[in-house]
């Protein structure tokens, strides 16, 4: 699992440019089924299980990551960025990034030196002043980088204490890893349902993947896997009681199916899986909001992996939470029997 997470978090795949991540995951899923495709939105769709079954279950995790797009290149070769997804500009300055041009180029986000910061040390950079310095001549940059190319934070994945991993893009490569691991379990089972695995694109921007891919199937139930907030300094709302290492978070929300929640909760209790409860009194802000409204409606559950530092280049999850999420999904697909 550690290697899978390291690999997934080292891939590009900013919203709308998911190809590198989609290809990696499609190849991974071909170990378990021949029915794998990547559609025009860069969604990865794999079908496992009994194709003639009465019940169709969708397992979803978004594959895209937050990042930037190139909007301008100046006469000195500096590259102007705009946000693609909910990048937190407070974390941007002087950060290493990868510019996904004709090749990948390392760069650093420009940062004002102290003599020019004019006492603005307390303020984050304005989002309209984000530039990347790749340290190459303007000619070379113009030849190899185009408007619309994506730029992602670079952070070498690392282990912290307690089997925790820190990396950029754990939102939502942690969810993707849980589903890939579940696919491995499920492929070894005799199951009575058809399972569609969807690694969906553009969640961080417009949820275009989750809005489109499920339309092609008649789905009865869906489990969507994402990350959600774990407690850290400054958090004093309901998330203050969520911890890393205490298992997946099961969400209660108007748009989610309560019976599915109860089923997942019972599966946790019967199989010694620690779980935590997340409450979203409105929508969930995840793919599940869209999948639940597919065609005439889909009974949907949201399972989240607790994460610290969300939407930064130093997100943190505990590997056991990813593994337990995979186990819970597999148990659910199996219909409650042990895997």
């Amino acid at each position: 699992m550690e290697k899978l997470l390291f690999d997934l978090c080292s891939l590009g795949g900013v919203s709308g440019n998911e190809v590198s991540a989609s290809e990696y995951c499609a190849e991974y899923l071909r170990r378990y089924t021949d029915d794998v495709k990547i559609d025009s939105f860069n969604n990865v769709i794999a079908v496992i299980g009994n194709n003639n079954a009465d019940k169709t279950i969708l397992l979803d995790a978004h594959i895209d990551r937050i990042g930037f797009v190139v909007t301008e290149i100046d006469d000195n070769g500096f590259i102007k960025l705009e946000k693609c997804g909910g990048v937190d500009v407070r974390t941007a300055l002087d950060s290493p990034v990868v510019v996904h041009g004709k090749e990948d180029y390392f760069g650093v986000i420009c940062c004002m030196p102290p003599h020019l910061s004019d006492g603005n040390e307390d303020k984050a950079v304005s989002p309209d002043k984000l530039w990347v310095d790749v340290g190459l001549s303007a000619d070379k940059v113009m030849q190899n980088v185009s408007f619309g190319d994506s730029v992602s934070f670079f952070a070498k994945p690392k282990m912290l204490l307690n089997n925790r991993i820190t990396a950029s893009a754990l939102d939502n490569r942690a969810g993707v890893a849980a589903i890939l691991k579940a696919a491995e379990f499920i492929s070894k089972l005799e199951i009575n349902s058809r399972v569609i695995i969807l690694l969906s694109s553009q969640e961080e921007t417009f949820a275009a993947g989750a809005k489109t891919a499920p339309f092609n199937y008649d789905i009865d139930e869906c489990i969507s896997v994402d990350v959600s907030f774990a407690s850290q300094p400054g958090i004093d709302d309901q998330y203050r009681n969520i911890s890393l290492g205490k298992g997946p978070m099961l969400c209660i929300s108007p748009i989610l199916n309560r019976d599915l929640y109860e089923t997942l909760k019972s599966l946790c209790e019967d199989n010694s899986i620690d779980y935590q409860t997340e409450i979203c009194s409105g929508n969930t802000g995840t793919n599940s909001d869209h999948i639940a409204l597919t065609k005439s409606g889909v009974r949907t559950a949201l399972v989240s992996i607790p994460e610290k530092n969300m939407h930064s280049q130093a997100e943190i999850v505990e590997i056991s939470d990813v593994e337990e999420t995979a186990r819970l999904i597999s148990l659910y697909v199996k219909g409650g029997q042990n895997v």
Binding site: R90, K158, M159, L160, H311, A314
Partner: peptide
């Protein structure tokens, strides 16, 4: 915010940053 550091050259750490959503 969210920068990676090394304590004593051997212990990995990151500087916490409250999620922007919250």
């Amino acid at each position: 915010p969210a920068t990676s550091v090394l304590v004593n050259g051997s212990v990995n750490g990151v500087i916490l940053n409250k999620p922007i959503h919250l």
